[in-house]
Design a protein around this nucleic acid. Sequence first.
DNA 1: GTAGCATGCTAAACCGATTTAGCCCACATA
DNA 2: TATGTGGGCTAAATCGGTTTAGCATGCTAC
Lengths: 358, 358
Amino acid sequence: MARSKPTLGSKAQKNARESISLKTLAEHLGLSKTAVSLVINRVPAAKSIPHRTQELIRAAARELNYRPNHLARSLRQQRSYTIGVLVPEISEGYAALVMSGIEDHLLQEGYFYFVVSHRHRNELIEEYPLLLQQRAVEGLVAVDTALSEGVQVPLVAVSGHRDLPGVTNIVLNHARGATLALEHLAKLGHRQMAFIKGQEFSSDTAVRWDSVRGAATELGIEIKERLVGQLEGESSSPELGYQVARKLLALGDPFTALFAFNDISAIGAIQALREAGRRIPEDVSVVGFDDIQSAAFQNPGLTTVKQPLREMGVLAAQTVLERINAPVKQPYPKEIIVEPDFVVRGSTGPVPRSAREK
Amino acid sequence: MARSKPTLGSKAQKNARESISLKTLAEHLGLSKTAVSLVINRVPAAKSIPHRTQELIRAAARELNYRPNHLARSLRQQRSYTIGVLVPEISEGYAALVMSGIEDHLLQEGYFYFVVSHRHRNELIEEYPLLLQQRAVEGLVAVDTALSEGVQVPLVAVSGHRDLPGVTNIVLNHARGATLALEHLAKLGHRQMAFIKGQEFSSDTAVRWDSVRGAATELGIEIKERLVGQLEGESSSPELGYQVARKLLALGDPFTALFAFNDISAIGAIQALREAGRRIPEDVSVVGFDDIQSAAFQNPGLTTVKQPLREMGVLAAQTVLERINAPVKQPYPKEIIVEPDFVVRGSTGPVPRSAREK
DNA sequence: GTAGCATGCTAAACCGATTTAGCCCACATA
DNA sequence: TATGTGGGCTAAATCGGTTTAGCATGCTAC
């Protein structure tokens, strides 16, 4: 009565690792593709299929190692469970941290994602979103990348600042970040501060600089034009910060603190300062921005405005999925603001005695 | 006679950004899907279609912004132009550098890729390759990840050491790396050396340690068991190296040099050494491994064995594509060896006078 | 005058799933 | 006895492309 478990032919067993199609599986079972598909996907319509049959189907699927072809399924369902992620560069601390947050949430929710890095080349920034949409991504996440045009799918921009239709921007509260940094330096007695602005192309540059000026005014700190440098060049190496710091030093105007656009440039600037004989933090206090991994590895540790980069990645992933899965075209958030933290490490200290009397 | 360029209805124009199907395009042109497809893909069979028609087709495709659905194409052609990349973690220096090399080459060749990170969790290491194959990847690249089973598609393992069917391993010449490091230290006069081995799960741990022992023997350097520590724990933070260095210091056995498993742990170890009052490099010389970005950002810069990580990524991508596109089942390389470099920075120096007489 | 061939296409199958519509049978009900 | 009604399925359409096979037509060669 109880038929023994059907043993598969040696061929089937040997090829168990190979992919088998729904059709083959259905034929093997003597059932229709429909029936098998219904059961495998546990759709409500399968309720009219008796338990016994369902079990047979599932057992055979397991045994033959059936795995539905995702392409075919996506094509039919018009759902790919795939997201596109656009970053300037992978190997850099900032994007890597955001990505790890994105990945965490997406994979957990059963989505996969394509990554493309454009290295700030405009034609790629234009082309990749199109290529990704051709590949049927259901949404896009752009990290530190100013997309020029609206796209057909939900788009979440981490550190995006443009108000475009269809875009949700995830932005740091830069005003708060600037205030935290300047307050910290002011409390330590610093008045003569130098600054490094970001590259023109970085989407945070303008906002952050406005925030710094706002905070400076608020705190009664004067910003001298001659003590303001700007990063130049595509790369994301400390070399850029090094160059800017050298220029600032060459001008000869005194300063006891330096607030850099990001950690990478702060690290480069420290190198330049040291070469010029300035000790950190005894002669010059340095504050970075981002809190990338190597900020903590520095010696002394880098005091910095911490962006919750991983969390911003998670938030971006959550938001894009919410928008994708919203029942109808609902209103979506245009902007989500996250709060910075301030991490005090060894690169900042009290203003040196020599500069104190001023 | 020369009909003016057909103006598209305002609706078509307005929706130009929306995706349009081959069928729609063909109907718009009054031609068959076949004809349009042949021309768009510039297949040889299109030679029987006159130039005039071809131009009409291409013009319409451009105008209506036709972009073939990649899913449909992949399904029919049984080619997805997609690779799966398996890494332990994205935000870590090692994997990020390799990935940037992989990406560079893949995108250049018109392939996209999925990234998944498994964080050393075994069930994910098992499951992800299957999920990726369900998504029809044509090949896999595994970075610092020991895959247990053969897969159905070409697999290239960066820093893989197991000899599995279907796998190409890309490995560093570890013997050379170890020799470079130990020779450097020996020339500086160091004899009492401490070592930090990698975690058990890291695929490089065993090979590298064997190489270190081999090189030590060759150079007549004695390795004391009590001066050998091992990283423990999943994370990739310097904290792990810090802990190991503390243990080594606690044992009290003197050493003037430390060779760490990687840069991250070297950075942590330096922190511990400094806290114990040892200056780098005056009291202890430290050598890392990998040459991740932050190695150069350290102060002093970290002397290290440089793995050509980016190049290894490019090589992995090249190899996997070559294997995919090989005309028939050809023999494929089982192993590709790359050479390390040695980068001398400030973390190493001559053995201290006090230890020299020994 | 017609076989043969090139030209310029098209119809239909196919990739591998999901999904809609509906068939057949047994049983209950009027 | 005719009429639902639910159970247990299946056939066929569909997603959007590519690819195979082949159909007219007109011209050339014999």
